[in-house]
């Protein structure tokens, strides 16, 4: 039994002259939930599609579920659940009909029982006769999860599963994901939400097609070397605006009534803050949030692009 559900190296994919995924190497241990973060268009969806065989990589090698992922795409597909970013089940079919179709196409035994179990498990049973197109966002997402997990895959790939879903539905969705992972399912999920990133066991941050940070949320924050100050007081948001331009400040952004000001060099950051250390402002050092780190990562990558 392979300990690693995913172990691929040197993944590349171009569309025309757009190099969307560059030398991505990623290893995911069995039973882990890995969050995939990165700005829009950074290559998250493409990476997921490469891993589940929906796209053919230009180069790269390795294993998914212990199988050579380039040669055994069909076998991997059978054991992988994939939930697309856009709802992609049949809107003109009922929930039950959609799931029955998925069950049949996967050649499942005891189809009726499994469909019913899944409907119950995800709280969809009462709505089983509704057309999928008539569901609201949260229910659609639940149905999509039901369809992606019906065949009891060993690997689950979720592409921004909670976009446009209310907080309660999101929480329930994540509880379900954790239950599945506890049962040994490996999950790779792309998201834009920092709170969701923190719900993952570990994180990969992808930018301009490169995987630039990998590890647990804590380790990524620790390794960033980032220093963050929290500023409070009336008019602090205007101060943040000016601070953002100052030398030594990588980012200064509002968090409600407070601002986070971050930089990599403590002295430079202190120097920049000095003029603002006066009434009515109060400053205190805080651990950087994941978002601060990602904003720093984005800035760093951009700098590298300009200097190269």
């Amino acid at each position: 039994m392979n300990e690693r559900a995913i172990d691929v190296r040197g993944l590349n994919k171009s569309f025309g002259d757009r190099h969307v995924v560059r030398d991505v190497s990623i290893a995911v241990d069995t039973g882990r939930i890995t969050g995939f973060l990165g700005p829009n268009g950074s290559g998250k969806t493409t990476t997921l599609r490469l891993l589940c065989g929906l796209l053919t990589p230009d180069s790269g090698e390795g294993t998914v579920l212990g199988l050579d992922f380039r040669a055994r795409g069909d076998a991997i597909k059978r054991q992988t659940g994939y939930m697309t970013q856009k709802f992609s089940l049949y809107e003109d079919m009922t929930l039950e009909e959609n799931l029955a179709f998925v069950a049949r196409v996967h050649g499942l035994e005891q189809r009726r029982e499994r469909v019913e179990d899944t409907l119950h498990r995800l709280g969809l049973f009462d709505r089983r006769r509704q057309l999928a197109g008539a569901l609201s966002g949260g229910w659609k997402q639940r149905l999509a999860l039901a369809a992606a997990t019906l065949h009891e895959p060993r690997l689950l790939l979720l592409d921004e599963p909670t976009a446009g879903v209310d907080p309660k539905a999101r929480r329930e969705f994540w509880d379900e994901i954790h239950t599945l992972a506890a049962g040994g399912l490996t999950v790779l999920v792309s998201t834009h939400y920092m709170d969701e990133a923190e719900r993952c066991h570990d994180i990969g941050y992808i930018l301009y097609g490169r995987l630039i940070a990998r590890g647990t949320a804590d380790s990524i924050i620790r390794d960033s070397g980032l220093v963050t100050f929290l500023g409070e007081g009336p008019g602090i948001d205007r101060a943040a605006h000016l601070l953002a331009q100052a030398d030594g400040v990588l980012s200064a952004s509002a968090f409600g009534a407070a601002v986070h000001v971050s930089g990599v060099k403590r002295e430079a950051l202190e120097a920049a803050l000095a003029p603002w250390r006066k009434e009515p402002f109060r400053w205190s050092e805080v651990p950087p949030s994941l978002e601060d780190v990602f904003i720093q990562l984005m800035g760093r990558e951009r700098d590298e692009r300009y200097t190269s």
Partner: peptide
């Protein structure tokens, strides 16, 4: 829906 169909066996 093609994406779902293609991700099946």
């Amino acid at each position: 829906t093609m994406e779902t169909l293609l991700s099946t066996p």
